[in-house]
Every structure is written in structure tokens, then in C-alpha cells.
Amino acid sequence: MKLREIQARTIEKTVKELCIKANTLLREDVLQAFRAFFDKEEENTLPKKMLKVLIENSEIAEEKKLPLCQDTGMVAVFIEMGQDVHILGGSLSGAINSGVEEAYTEGYFRKSVVKDPLMRDNTGTNTPAVIHVDITEGDKMSISVMPKGFGSENKGKIGMLNPTCTQDDIIDFCVETVKKAGPDACPPYILGVGLGGTMDQCALLSKKALLRPINESNPEPHIAELEEKIKERSNALGIGVMGLGGISTVIGVNVKEAPTHIAGCPVAVSLCCHALRSASAEI
């Protein structure tokens, strides 16, 4: 088997382009959801007006190549790398971090990463990125970037539920997470929910779940039903856009599940603000 060679420079360039795209161009599925909820909100109300502001915000950002939100986040990078790929001319992490740095400098994005959680000196480059690598079959490499703001990241939660928990217990945990976030983290929210695995894996699943378009349900019918119920109950909370009431509290729920242990049922919620940003490419 011959190895496929990929230049580190190609990875760097791809990461840079994806970071710029993700920060300035709102995902089509998210924009569609804004429009759908805008149509359903009551006329002449603040929530409807605010949804219009969000749609206009995405238009200005696209036209002027401005970041949708000033919090251009800490960048999570998800790599699926075929085992027949060989990287030349640099390291994978070096290439990714260089790509992030170039995007954040040339794109005029805010640098929000501090080197040490206690000393809090800004690295000035928005790196390091948080890199997750999965080795797969074949000779392709897929890259997804997700710059996520910390206003909503701060509201994430993980719960180690009992193996005997019911569907309602899982829904309660997710809805309670939304309720606690309330108006603080830029609703309408999108929920990435990890279900199963171990504690660390479950948290990662919740992030990865946000990569899936929010207008696509989980392929497993019982999980798709769970997604629908979490969304329905969250929207009954009446938090709404900017916490101003109405029906648009959660505009998407994506659950990603994995095998787990007989003794537990981990549930993690990555609560995301309405500016759910990601972009993907294959090399």
C-alpha cells in the first residue's frame, strides 16, 4: 500500500480558509432556522424584531467579511485522517495552529485565547486550537473547524446519570441546562448533546453533534424522537430570542450517541449560541 502524501502547507491553508468562512458566513441550516422561526413569531413583537436583526447581521457579515460575532471563539478542529496519509513538511498540529493564526490575523478576528488559566496572558494568535484527531481507513483527510464563543461555552453541562434513567430524565437534564443559561448566552440556542461513552468522550460527542446540520435528525428513530422532545420542551420555557419571550428558545437539537457502560448513562450538553459556526473540507 502506497502512502498518500499531503503537504503541511496544504493543511495550514485549508484551516485558514475554513476559519475565515466559519466566522463570516452563517451556516445555511442556521439561517434557514432563523427564517422559519421568524415566520412563526407573532407580528410586532420584540422577539420577531430581534430575529430580523440576526438575519441582517448575517447579511452584513457576509457582505463586509466581518465576523458574525466579536467573540470569534476558541477554535475546535476535528480531523479525520486516513491511515494511509503521510504528512510532509511539518507537523499536523503545527500546520493547524499556523492556519488558525493566519486566519485570525488576516481576518481581523478577536484573539481570545490566554496561555494560562490563572496568569491570563493573551497568546496574541488565538492559538492553540483544540485539536481532535480520529484515524480512519483510506487516504483522505477531512477537516472541520468550529470557533465557539465562550458566553455559551460557559453554560455547558455534563451529568453522569444512572443506567436506569428514563428518556424523561435525559430530557429534564437538557432542559434544565437551557433554563439555567436563560437569557445569558445569546438565545435562540442550538444544543449539541452527547449521550453515552465515558465522561470525556461524552463531552466530545456533544461538540461533534453540533457539526451536523440542524435540519437533519439523528438516523436512529428513538434518538430523533429524543431530539424532538428536548426541543419542544425547551421552547415551552418561553425564554426566546435575547430572553425577550416568544417561541424561539432552542432552534436545533443534535444528539450524538455512543456505547457506554452497564453502570452509567453520561449526558453532556454543549449549549451553543445562535451563532453556531463551523466549516468543513476534505483534502
Binding site: L54, N57, S58, A185
Partner: peptide, 8 residues
Amino acid sequence: APGGAGAY
């Protein structure tokens, strides 16, 4: 102020 509407 409208959160997440930085460009606007």
C-alpha cells in the same frame, strides 16, 4: 443589546 449581532 442584541447579543451575537456584532457586525450589525
